[in-house]
Design a protein around this nucleic acid. Structure first.
Lengths: 107, 107
DNA sequence: TTCGTTAATCGTCGATAGGCGATTGTAAGG
DNA sequence: CCTTACAATCGCCTATCGACGATTAACGAA
């Protein structure tokens, strides 16, 4: 049961960096395939961005399809479901009526 | 808008370690207040566990109330909601009918 | 084939995280 | 008061992360 902790922590680690979150936002906002635009958008060196992309790809959060000389990155949202399931498991208190019930935050 | 990336990454970082996930599971399974039981459960040194608890507390994921010589730790599930919201934002493709639609997993 | 573009990889560096034992602080009990 | 138990903090060390420039690899176009 706790064996999943490894997998879950890897998943969380993939999200544990602002640059990677930014990349995910960017991929969400960009329907088509983009390559080096990511580098320009996050404002980091090409090698650094490539490393972040590798981490995201390894975690399964994104996919990378070769499209000629460049690469088409796309979100793979399903990969994060286990993490959501874990957090959900911690969050039974407030009503699980429908979707996001406690949006107003318990504060 | 992207300012939240910092906050979200901090939140994800709090979950990015197996020992901390184990602690959260333990707190979920233990209704009452436990103190040093955590140390015994995770199998790490007391100082190490204390550090993990500090990280979780700093992230707001748990709370710690002083109860005499020991401390009563409890989950604070609401703190993770922003993270869930972010992941949800990445996951619109499949029906957003009601909360957790893809519970059966896409695969 | 040669050239230009794009992405991945390599090597290096400083910063951070994770682990531990030892120490300190605090609060109940004798 | 002193002692005991628990948790937090303090060095200290190792391992990993994040960033970079430079290099290499792959592909399309000329």
């Amino acid at each position: 049961m706790q064996d999943q902790d490894l997998e879950l922590s890897e998943l969380a680690k993939a999200l544990a960096h602002p640059a990677r979150l930014r990349i995910l936002r960017l991929l969400l906002a960009t329907p088509g395939c983009i390559g080096g635009e990511i580098v320009d958008a996050v404002g980091l060196a090409q090698s650094t961005v490539s490393e972040h992309l590798r981490i995201l790809k390894t975690a399964g959060v994104i996919t990378g399809d070769i499209a000629g000389p460049r690469i088409c990155y796309a979100l793979n949202p399903g990969a994060l479901q286990p993490l959501v399931a874990f957090i959900d498991m911690l969050t039974p208190p407030v009503g699980d009526v429908c979707g996001v019930p406690g949006r107003e935050e318990t504060s």
